[in-house]
Amino acid sequence: MDNQGDVWEVFIQSKPGLTHKHVGNIQAMGKEMALQNARDTYTRRKEGTCIWVVKFDDIFSSVPEENGSFFDPSDDKIYREATHYVMPEGSKHI
């Protein structure tokens, strides 16, 4: 089997001001080609104003099976939620 290049994950911003959203991946040899392949594959109908490509090997992910312990630090900090605070009776627009 032949070498088809590295896998690059593709992120597209659909409008200025919005976040870049992951759409899939492509294969390419080098970053310039990755950008062009991403354009040809994911934006044939003007879906984007900006594309990011990130080499798959450079992405380090958390492990969903470990979500319990990994995200545990936020579980007991309910004071980060606005609903934690009791407002005086009759107060409005707050």
Partner: peptide
């Protein structure tokens, strides 16, 4: 026909997430 090439790419890309390479 260009769309079909693109659709093939989307699907290979999704199929690769199952731990098997496109070349395979």
């Amino acid at each position: 026909v260009q769309d079909e090439a693109g659709h093939g790419q989307y699907l290979y890309s999704a199929a690769e997430t199952l731990g098997k390479s496109r070349a395979t």
